[in-house]
Design a protein around this nucleic acid. Structure first.
Lengths: 335, 335
DNA sequence: ATGAAAGCGCTAACAC
DNA sequence: GTGTTAGCGCTTTCAT
């Protein structure tokens, strides 16, 4: 079946291409009878406008890009769900790109999106990302950019995050109240402001309770499960923390594995607490005290800001910086 | 910063547009010095070809679509990971569409992809999908389509699945050997051939061990967590099965919730086994006996078949029907 | 109320 | 080795 174009419809109906185009776009000038005829035939032949011709002509592609560190992750997959919902409702197509926590890949992807392929970009930074020139270039180009979760304050764009400082402080205090004195802090990055905020929440809680900040208890991990396993094992053996605060879900999983292999008991020997969107956290052995982020809602709101900016040609000023609340769910891994 | 086009480069260098185009495409006829000059300037100005102009002209968009029932799901998010990897390596952009297990949405999405937006489609059917005309139309249009996991034998396309019948039979036999006599079977759909294969594996194991197939133990569930909770609760209370075989991970999660609320014990009161790609299945209380599918590899292979078909303009014949092996991991929920 | 024609940015015949 | 030109399918002025 050959592609059906405006031209073909025009020939079939003995009308000009522009009349067809206008009918399909419900132009007020066109005779209703003509319109009906055109629409009927278009439907019958399942006419689908060529998106590239339209994009070339009109500018605007009704497409957004989502750049993520990874997708096999409860937080990000929930966020995509929210993104896709709002995008679909507003008629946007969603392109997905994964950086795998690789800064160079992130730059590369950003550079390839400067050509009009997308009308806007949603992004969560890779853990390696420190330099933000690639994002500045995007903004200079006038491509709307909204960051979420892994954001940066050094970039002039709206963003959606959670109350990382407050909830981390609260979580750390919970550990202290439960009797912990040597709390280790695990994170994925030393660069991201989200990591910094979580860390500051942690350290501020320590200070408030007159506990010293011990550098040896602060561990930066990577994308490699094996490396993380070894480093966490080393941490537990050498430093003997009585609690671990994992700032990322996957690290908590590894902690469970290490603790199990070392034949230690949670929470007696060591308490564990983590940011996590695991649906069955309550059925883990022991159930995991979690900081649950509203991932779906983060995705929704970020996309909503983006699509509005695309529609109106600019962001609302001042730039929206939305902070949603996370929830601390206390379970058996800490009490 | 205004967009930089071939025309602009041509003006700047006092060359014709086609010379610029050819230089950038490394045409053999062009003088090396000219080429170098053009390439240097293009790089300096960060020239990015307009993808829509190219697609309009050349046909082919270097874009594939992935149509999925959902993404907040360990299986599908791992599959996306594999898809994205192969796509990126072959220079393809990945559009993602979610059907939320809704047949009409699936049809709608398929219809909107018949206009050249994508060069090919990867798809896993929604649980509601019974009629496949929308896919036939795609194939008629000449758009390469590769199904994975949730496939259908009624459609003339390559696909990638796992050994659903064999592993389901093996899993059911494992339950029988462990002493179960009333094994309930939970699934999401009565239409999909994958559901049928898993069911047949289950029923064939029953027959082999002279156990009767009891219709009341076969339950079709939906997309709604609440409904599923109630239906599973009803099943357990009324039929008192001594084991449950969940053919989808999310159903196993709900089973854990129901069993817990009913104050029953796994595996003593009731054994549980499920298809699942949960990384921490071994840390559940009790650890979950799982059928683990190679989700990442499924995504990779499906994409590899698709990109090859796009490259060569047709699928290899006979159509590839790849079957990868799943792995039954026996844990405490069944022994 | 409809048609003719220009042009979006690019590639590829076809000149020279 | 480089330039000229047509045309991909569409929207949108400008005519009529």
């Amino acid at each position: 079946m050959a592609d059906i174009t405006l031209k073909k419809l025009a020939e079939l109906l003995n009308l000009s291409i522009s009349t067809i185009s206008r009918s399909l776009n419900d132009d007020y000038q066109i005779n209703q009878t003509t319109k009906d005829k055109v629409i009927a035939l278009a439907k019958e032949l399942n006419y689908q406008p060529n998106p590239y011709a339209g994009s070339l002509r009109k500018k605007g592609s009704k497409t957004i890009a989502v750049i993520l560190p990874e997708v096999a992750n409860n937080f990000f997959s929930l966020a995509i769900d929210g993104i896709e919902e709002v995008a679909q409702k507003n008629g946007f197509h969603v392109l997905i790109y994964l950086t795998h926590e690789n800064y160079l890949k992130e730059v590369d992807i950003a550079n390839h999106l400067m050509n009009g392929r997308v009308d806007g970009i949603l992004m969560s930074l890779s853990s390696e990302t420190n330099n933000l020139e690639h994002l500045d270039k995007l903004i200079e180009k006038g491509i709307p950019l909204v960051l979420f979760d892994r954001v940066s304050d050094k970039i002039n764009s709206p963003h959606v995050t959670t109350d990382d400082f407050e909830v981390s402080q609260k979580a750390t205090e919970h550990l202290i109240t439960a009797g912990s004195k040597k709390i280790a802090f695990l994170s994925l990055s030393r660069y991201l402001s989200i990591a910094e905020k979580r860390f500051k929440g942690y350290s501020s809680a320590l200070k408030k309770h007159d506990l010293d900040l011990d550098e040896k208890l602060i561990v930066s991990l990577t994308n490699s499960l094996e490396e993380n396993y070894e480093n966490i094992k080393k941490l537990i053996i050498e430093e003997k923390p009585d609690a671990i605060f994992a700032s990322v879900e996957s690290l908590a999983m590894t902690v469970y594995e290490v603790v199990n292999d070392l034949k230690l008991k949670i929470p007696n020997d060591i308490k564990v607490l983590s940011f996590s969107n695991l649906r069955i956290a309550s059925f883990l052995a022991p159930s995991l005290t979690s900081i649950n982020q509203p991932a779906f809602e983060i995705g929704r709101q970020a996309t909503s800001i983006l699509t509005r900016a695309i529609k109106y040609g600019k962001f609302e000023t001042p730039l929206e910086k939305i902070i949603l609340k996370s929830e601390l769910q206390i379970r058996n891994s800490t009490v």
